[in-house]
Design a binder for these strands. Sequence first.
DNA 1: CAAATATGCTAAAATGTTTAAGCAAATTTT
DNA 2: AAAATTTGCTTAAACATTTTAGCATATTTG
Lengths: 381, 381
Amino acid sequence: MVQILLPVRAKCIPNALGQLSPPPAIKLKLKKKILIHDIAKHLDVSIATVSLVLNGKAKEKRISDSLAEKVLKYVEEVGYKPNQLAKSLRTGKTHVIGLVVEDIANPFFATVAALIEKKLLARGYRIIYCSTNGDTAKTRDLLTMFQERHVDGYILALPDGVESDVRTLVRSGKPLILFDRELAGVLANAVVVDGEKGMYEATQHLLEQGFTSVAMVTLQAGQAQMQARLQGYSQAMQEWQLPEMVLELEFQQEREQIIHQMQAFCQANPTCNALLFATNYLGVYGLEAVNGLGRRIPEDLAIVSFDDNDLFRLYSPSITVVAQPLEAMAESIISTLLSALEGSQETGRITQLQLAPQLIVRESSIRVPQKARPRASRTKT
Amino acid sequence: MVQILLPVRAKCIPNALGQLSPPPAIKLKLKKKILIHDIAKHLDVSIATVSLVLNGKAKEKRISDSLAEKVLKYVEEVGYKPNQLAKSLRTGKTHVIGLVVEDIANPFFATVAALIEKKLLARGYRIIYCSTNGDTAKTRDLLTMFQERHVDGYILALPDGVESDVRTLVRSGKPLILFDRELAGVLANAVVVDGEKGMYEATQHLLEQGFTSVAMVTLQAGQAQMQARLQGYSQAMQEWQLPEMVLELEFQQEREQIIHQMQAFCQANPTCNALLFATNYLGVYGLEAVNGLGRRIPEDLAIVSFDDNDLFRLYSPSITVVAQPLEAMAESIISTLLSALEGSQETGRITQLQLAPQLIVRESSIRVPQKARPRASRTKT
DNA sequence: CAAATATGCTAAAATGTTTAAGCAAATTTT
DNA sequence: AAAATTTGCTTAAACATTTTAGCATATTTG
């Protein structure tokens, strides 16, 4: 999807002040940044006093109320803001959280990131976020970068292959929480969704609707959560004693390739009358693939995808999904993180949470051959 | 859309080492962080020497090749990484860029952010990103936070109301670039899309298709780019001497409210047979609204939205859009920023770029009353 | 009234770098 | 052979804070 640069108007303004400025050395009155030293000098007190007052240790360190007030007043007046770099250097705290996801443009990660950001901001934390794009080397780079920047904590959804790096990170003692996916052999805080249960229920639902030839489309990745989703499908199929049909796609392929493989799979398995997609974007591509083949949903082919989004909700027919509890994930991640950050240093305690996804039945998986009403039917909680 | 917390499995592991650890004081062999001082001591040279070698100033400062090599080798061996906080404090550079958008969960911003991140990362820069949610006070907070964190540059898509803050920021001399929207009266680098042209062409297209009663759905915001989009619509309508119909929605409303107002608008204007949406998410909500009313697209109502996304591309019927050149935007933003960051300090030069959007005609705006083929027809460039 | 304690503040070390200035020794130039 | 320059490195200041330890003075206690 390469877009083309088409500048319609392009101004280049040589100098904001026009062309007649006589000497090139214009003294920009760059208001000299005010320091704690300046505050102290002006009030004729020591730097320490100002610092203590500003950090709320006036009482504790027996600074008189009158002086403390005077300091605060003057600080407010001149709008002094402590240099966070110096502060961090001294205290070892940056109040920055590192967030690593696979791809921030993916609605699932974007939404969770937005929720987390909102809640952490209120607690005085900032986040630095980065995408791994599933690349192990890049992930490793990002993790060391976060260490270098001295983030106070980590929120991570990582590709597999970086287990030992994460183990080292855990050992460093900084609060760390895995989400969306755990890492094999890494004992760390984690918040994940029970994909097995979700896919089991989705498969059951399809089978109960009478779709007997259900195939699963997933990724080859060794990631634990992917295997769980597949497992849920397998389980249900076995219970019904039906043969499993799985399309395992290679990771990090181009959109066109994926669609092509899906179409090939459908043509190679003409009896297949229902598709389960293991992720958000596989589902999106799947719709394109099915459209391209001219198959009708759900008459010719029923569809269920893991992970909800706008497209699935509004598509016609609307798409049945296994929705992840985004708010609850964000909430759990943050509370786990905060208790690790602000709690005492009992570093040995770890928390692992597995949340239940929710099957939202829509039109794409309903057997009735009669045209369904255009309004989506949605499960209530 | 409140999701409910349903923990299925919740482990709480008291201690990673089990329950029989005799004294509670386990000496975690926390490998003492290695400092430049340690390197110097071990090699029996001064700290300065090590620092100079590490910063590539060995030649310039006449450190002998043999010594330089020895330093590099040992640094590599012990895996020493300079403390970025100390470095930043000393040099005044953080190599961090602040990115502020309205909402990172919006696919437009998420995609641009992802592109920017990717390209800046390769140049050794990191980004801190935050969402304003259109809130002026929060935006102001974010901007001061970025200043406090000493970011090296700013990439901003801001709500109106923070003009003076941005002016101050510009005056501070840090590289700064506005995107998506300019700010009234703020002379700064900017990369925007020509919404007027885009909407003009979209309106023309609808009129040429024979939809004579075209309405525009937009936001009340005073933002320049919104007014431009409206202007493009007005222009076209005037040329055809047709009456304008505009629904101006208040900013920051709930989804349900917006949908409700759209539906009310449609019912109040039964003759209206085409809708233009000024943004991405208005378009999405618009589809829900139209669905809810049971109107068929495009038979009863043609639809065009500003800003493309998965939903519009895959929706059936596929939705005609005015697509923004995301790659080109990211590219322009970065090259402008980098030249400001790495170029000399000629701070007076500003660059303003306006890129052309692209009308992608799909099914939702084609007059033909016969059922269109399911495959989307797409303009080629 | 001496000793002990409380009060109100400050000096200075510490955080981990970069970099300007400088200093001997070696080499080259007059 | 003295003067000048080059070589190869080091000293120490600077960056902007926080925080421990401590110092007078004032108050309370025995």
